[in-house]
Simulated scan of single mutants.
Amino acid sequence: MPVTDLTTLKDAQRELLLKPLDAAVFLAPWYTAVPANFTDATGALQSLPPEFKSVGLIDKKTGVSFARKQTNASIESYGELQATRDDITSDITTLEFEPQQTNAMTLELTTSANLAQVEAAADSGEVFFAQPTSEQVTYYSAIVIGRDGNEAAPIYVFKVMPKVAVTKYAGEQWTPTKVLSQKLTLTAFKDDTAGYAVAHGFGGLGWKNLLDKTGITVASV
């Protein structure tokens, strides 16, 4: 074997350290088709289907969090110090963020109410609605887009969850120093039409410029 050193073996590439400097969460009614491509041949970001609506501003400190939790069932054998078999029995991914804007979408997410039939009073503009007493799970299709770099050569990071539902509410805290909002946790479920629960993607001109360093094979033209 040829002589080398640790610096060479490490193959450190600082340009591959990605950091989403901005991000947006988009939700649509469940079964809304996800775009086949998020960027065009030049790397420019494409518009999403009109059904996907942004939740708007989200809390900066907590950002957007993705968590994955697996449950394993191990088999131990007499005389063996390690498990002799291990099976994954569940694989759950969650999406967590805190929407800051008060609008129909965020109100539906945080209260489980359906505001499609709710109207503001014609004279006062007052809105009043009851939180459901008979709970029914509402599913959505979710797309999360993050951007690193600048607008001239952006690197986009995509997460697609074709079937999600709110499974945890952090609750509201009214104080004079905090916006009226609450953190939400959405759980991803496998969508039979899409064939998956979570998908990942990268794109943009900045990503295209780095592609040859990532080790990912490029399709033949």
Results as ranks from 00 to 15, higher is better:
residue 4 T to D: 07
residue 5 D to S: 08
residue 10 K to Y: 09
residue 11 D to Y: 10
residue 11 D to P: 01
residue 16 L to Q: 10
residue 18 L to H: 10
residue 18 L to I: 05
residue 24 A to H: 11
residue 25 V to C: 05
residue 26 F to W: 14
residue 27 L to D: 02
residue 31 Y to M: 13
residue 32 T to G: 11
residue 32 T to I: 01
residue 39 T to S: 09
residue 39 T to M: 05
residue 46 Q to R: 11
residue 50 P to F: 01
residue 50 P to M: 04
residue 53 K to A: 12
residue 57 L to Q: 09
residue 58 I to Y: 06
residue 60 K to P: 04
residue 61 K to P: 00
residue 61 K to F: 02
residue 66 F to V: 06
residue 67 A to K: 14
residue 73 A to W: 03
residue 75 I to Q: 14
residue 75 I to L: 13
residue 78 Y to E: 14
residue 78 Y to H: 07
residue 81 L to P: 00
residue 82 Q to S: 14
residue 83 A to S: 15
residue 91 D to I: 03
residue 91 D to W: 02
residue 91 D to Y: 00
residue 92 I to A: 06
residue 95 L to N: 01
residue 96 E to A: 09
residue 97 F to H: 06
residue 98 E to N: 12
residue 100 Q to L: 15
residue 101 Q to S: 12
residue 102 T to A: 11
residue 105 M to D: 05
residue 105 M to V: 15
residue 110 T to F: 00
residue 111 T to L: 00
residue 111 T to D: 01
residue 114 N to E: 02
residue 118 V to P: 09
residue 120 A to K: 10
residue 128 F to H: 11
residue 128 F to V: 15
residue 128 F to C: 11
residue 129 F to S: 08
residue 132 P to N: 10
residue 132 P to H: 06
residue 136 Q to M: 08
residue 138 T to L: 04
residue 139 Y to E: 06
residue 139 Y to F: 15
residue 140 Y to P: 01
residue 147 R to L: 05
residue 151 E to P: 00
residue 153 A to M: 10
residue 153 A to E: 15
residue 154 P to L: 10
residue 158 F to N: 03
residue 160 V to H: 04
residue 161 M to Y: 07
residue 162 P to K: 08
residue 164 V to Q: 08
residue 172 E to C: 00
residue 175 T to P: 00
residue 175 T to V: 05
residue 176 P to E: 11
residue 179 V to Y: 04
residue 180 L to K: 09
residue 181 S to H: 04
residue 182 Q to I: 08
residue 188 A to D: 08
residue 190 K to A: 10
residue 192 D to Q: 14
residue 198 V to Q: 04
residue 204 G to K: 11
residue 204 G to E: 09
residue 204 G to S: 12
residue 204 G to W: 06
residue 208 K to N: 14
residue 212 D to A: 15
residue 212 D to G: 09
residue 212 D to F: 13
residue 213 K to Y: 12
residue 214 T to K: 04
residue 218 V to D: 00
residue 220 S to N: 14
